[in-house]
Design a protein around this nucleic acid. Sequence first.
RNA 1: GCCGGGGUAGCUCAGUCGGUAGAGCGACGCACUCGUAAUGCGUAGGUCACGGGUUCGAUUCCCGUCUCCGGCUCCA
Length: 643
Amino acid sequence: MALTITFPDGSERSFERGVTGAEIAASIGPRLAKAAVAVKLDGNAIDLGRAITEDGTVEIITDASEDGRHVMRHSAAHVMAQAVLDLFPGSKFAIGPPITDGFYYDFEVDEPFTPEDLERIEARMAEIIAEDQPFEREELSADQALEVFSDQPFKTEIINSVDEDEGAGGAEVSVYHNRSFVDLCRGPHVPSTKRLKAVKLMRSAGAYWRGDETKPQLQRIYGTAWESKKELDAYLHRLEEAERRDHRKLGQELELYSFPSDLGSGLAVWHPKGGLLRMIIEDYSRRTHLEHDYEIVATPHVAKADLWERSGHLSFYKEGMYPGMVLDESTEYRMKPMNCPFHILIFSSRGRSYRELPLRMYELGTVYRYERSGVVHGLMRARGFTQDDSHIFIEEDDIASELQNLLDFTLMVLRDFGFEEFEADLSTKDPDKYIGSDELWDKAEDALQLALETAGLPYNIAEGEGAFYGPKIDVHVRDAIGRRWQLSTLQVDFAQPENFDLLYASDHNTRERPVMIHRALMGSIERFVGILIEHYAGALPGWLAPVQATILSVADRHLPYAEEVATRLRNAGLRVEVDGADDTVGEKIRRAIVQKHPAVLVVGDNDVENGTAGLRPRGEEERRGVPIAEVESELVAMCRPPR
RNA sequence: GCCGGGGUAGCUCAGUCGGUAGAGCGACGCACUCGUAAUGCGUAGGUCACGGGUUCGAUUCCCGUCUCCGGCUCCA
């Protein structure tokens, strides 16, 4: 009895009923057979060795594809669990999925793993892999599975929850074994352990069972697996690259900012060069906001607790706020975790007309949030930070047009700073927790979606992830090494206008409730700087670089000329330093390069005589004897802001 | 907050099985006046995170606090 298999290119071939993916791959070619790790039948990944009994579409999953790596990593996780159970008898194992770039497995063990343990486990894994143990699939009833995993409480819990999900009784579960090791698993897996070519354990860390901090803390081991040693090395190299770009390290080396422990966790001080960088970014932000019809406002850092009570922050955000300060033995004050209530007070300071809307208030607002101690991370996650924050008050009918403008503005800003790839998340209503009418929500969600589509921005819908007061768009960028960062956030807010009873007079002289949009484009200046530093690996584009050029004198007698050149360039609006230190030229060049200055100028006897300089733009060869006028125009062009 | 690992000179780190500590770079001084990624010599610099305990003696051992790192959870 034959069956018909369709391939991704649309071609069809017939095979004997019961043919396996491995056989199909072999029939196509020996190289494919060698690279195959699993097969997709009608879109579902299954083992290469599984018999195919129905007509269907078949796609061979090869080891160098994302799907293939997923399968390998999953298999590697099994081998790791097998090794751990061998070396630490009596340990309980929980779950071990593949993840981006690797896999992990969670264990309950008597003692946390040490680095030496990881080495032993890795060595044991190498033995298991060398033994070429086949992965074998078996279908069991839930009862049989409970029997097999009777001494494994986490597995038991998973099996029981499978029952709940799929209706009581008769539920089948699949297990995979290799040698004596059995794990509950849907599969698929590589045919045998020998297919794991390049596996490495990375680190161990605590992790909660089911990600829930009220549940037991397990020990997680992270590993990575690739189709070849070469790919593994490339991955490890990417990690080193990320470490090289670490904004905490570069921030110190480039003298931008630091985190003195005397200040407290999550609080940065900005050194002169960092202060200058901030100023450049903030000036850009203020200027572009003014050009986009925003009104600049300014508000204090503390407010009475009553305000936070009314805004709902003390109900919904209390754990994120610094504790209160009681003044005059009665009135409690709180540091602001957000700027919204202040802007609302400005709105409601007098009667408002529809003619004023949209009313866009903008502030570089510094907020303080009591982040849990374990989450603080350099500038990316601080306890005090400054948002490029705005609250836009609009008529309900203007939501869509305002959001479109806003998204355009957002992308303009991000592009100006050199980001080119964007993705968005659209977070929608949580049906169990929301305020406002369904109609208004639908309208807002549609408007957000339309704005994303008009902007041509790829997006995911995060169903039910919206805040209780409204849906939102988060914009993520990809940096130079492909990492994804969340920057902008655009939130429609129905709750605050209600809480503060905001009203405006409509064109029919009725009192209407405005809708509020809460948005930050860079997110926070701190995080934005951190991401810029990592994106550019510290080598900021000319317009952002705190020092745009260093002028080096070959000998002391060239110093006056160096100063003369510096003055001329400063008059042209450039940020220039003279390095007249008593060091060799090579030493001074090195210093300027390490500091990642966009350009280095060297002046010596010939330059003094001819009114020239040696010009060495970052990453380029040096050109000697360039006339100063030319140096100036070249540097001005190199350092020109995007707008 | 939780689990694990750290905190020694401005930076990167070594070291002390309990007897108050070293290197390289940097800083400073002197010499050199030099043409493209580290010139040579010299000098200074440390309450070994902070507090308590054990001890004849603690930077070292114990406890607590602060802080950092890697994760979990959470987030701009």
